[in-house]
Design a protein around this nucleic acid. Structure first.
Lengths: 247, 247
DNA sequence: GGTTGTGAATCCATTCACAGCC
DNA sequence: GGCTGTGAATGGATTCACAACC
């Protein structure tokens, strides 16, 4: 009755990864590629954890969700682990991505080489401004937003990036969803309402800075006031990077 | 002996906000500004929660950490709440921000108007490429990275944005930290090692897409396979935005 | 009547610590 | 001896549900 978990050799089935784990797998993947380039072919949980900026217990727990991945006493096989993670993340083929809004930020994103090397291909650019339509960017022609349904269909696009002004973002989203897009990465500073089954992730520059601002505020409040010695709070300093800090 | 919590009238003291709450306050703030523009002067937890894309219980719990903020039976005073949140986030004065790396993305960030309106001022641009030094962007001159210490000092910069290639990011970070910067927003796809007391937040475009890719992968695996009826898993559909989705 | 603020209950994530395996 | 995989323990965050208040 249980719907046949695919055989043990058949690549990982679909484990129900915790969301927090999913969010970290890409970072592990990046670190692994880096290690592979440097010629490592195995790595310990300790080593990979350091390279990915997490602690080793968390890393091992995360990887344990993928099934048997390492070998005790040895560590993880780098290229094998890369395959397994790419498998789970659905990165076995390059996914087609549409980008809407070729203003300041959109231009930069369209030119970003990192997408290509990490599993994605920007295959279409859109803008609502007729003055922009027809412009060539990085080998692609900017098309009018009217053409969305057609292009999404033709190119099998399921993921879109929104880099429009905030006031246009919801409208654009509705059209994207209507055209069949089911995942959206939103750079506009606003919340998007989408129907069930559509995923949205948001990146907001100002919000990131405001979170940092909070910590700045707290830090200055603390140092301004008292030199209170909190004993036993010292240990575990973040290991420092390459060169000396003191110039 | 306890170090005098500032008086009750004296604006909010320094509550130890849960990190998850801190991360949401900026979104509430944005929503509140939007409501204020539209002329609302009070809002219920339900209303604000909808505008910020969270549920109302969470919103109330978050705001409760700031002390008494709303009035029962009525709701929250919009402009009062704005003040309170800006207070806690340390946004009472515009913070000076440095941006390092004026390539593709750096250019776009330097031109991003949203910073100005939301509590920040980009006051300095840096690059390592001498060919770029001297260039004018948005009223600022690009300076060589050698000048960091001097400028950071002069302009009281505590926050920096890194938009360099990955291979340069750690080195740049070390110099920023040495110059006195204590918060970093990192757009380079790599982990940064920093000493205790320095905060780093990271934004990685490809990682965001990879997380979406996972969900795409899962969705297609589910629809490809079985029409398994999971009873009682339906409810709570995401409310749909303005116009109809069906074109 | 309406809405906030909050204990209690639940859920999820992280960390600990060690048994099991190479 | 070294390292992974994992139960058990802890710690946070979310949700529930209602008393307190306007």
């Amino acid at each position: 009755m249980s719907q046949q978990r695919t055989g043990p050799t058949d690549g990982p089935d679909f484990p129900d990864l915790p969301e927090a784990t999913v969010a970290r797998l890409p970072e592990y993947l990046r670190a692994l590629h880096h290690l592979a380039e440097q010629g490592h072919d195995t790595v310990s949980s300790e080593g990979l954890a350091a390279a990915a900026g997490v602690n080793s217990a968390k890393l091992r727990k995360d990887l344990s969700h993928l099934g048997r991945t390492g070998t005790r006493g040895v560590g993880y096989d780098v290229s094998l682990l890369i395959d397994q993670i790419e498998q789970v993340l659905g990165l076995t083929h390059r996914r087609a991505v549409a980008l809407v809004g070729v203003g300041n930020l959109g231009h930069a994103l369209a030119g970003y080489a990192g997408f290509g090397s990490r599993g994605f291909r920007i295959v279409a650019l859109f803008d609502a401004d007729p003055g922009r339509v027809g412009e060539h960017i990085n080998g692609l022609v900017v098309r009018h937003i009217e053409d969305l349904p057609e292009v999404v269909e033709q190119e099998s696009i399921s993921i879109a990036v929104i880099a429009t002004p905030a006031h246009a973002a919801q409208h654009v989203t509705d059209r994207l969803v209507a055209a069949g897009v089911t995942s959206v990465l939103n750079f506009a500073p606003c919340v998007l309402n989408v129907p069930e089954g559509v995923d949205v992730r948001k990146v907001d520059l100002a919000i990131e800075l405001q979170i940092l601002s909070f910590h700045e505020h707290r830090k200055s409040a603390l140092t301004a006031l008292p030199p209170v010695q909190k004993p036993g709070r010292v240990g575990v300093a973040n290991r420092l990077g390459g060169e000396a800090v003191g110039s």
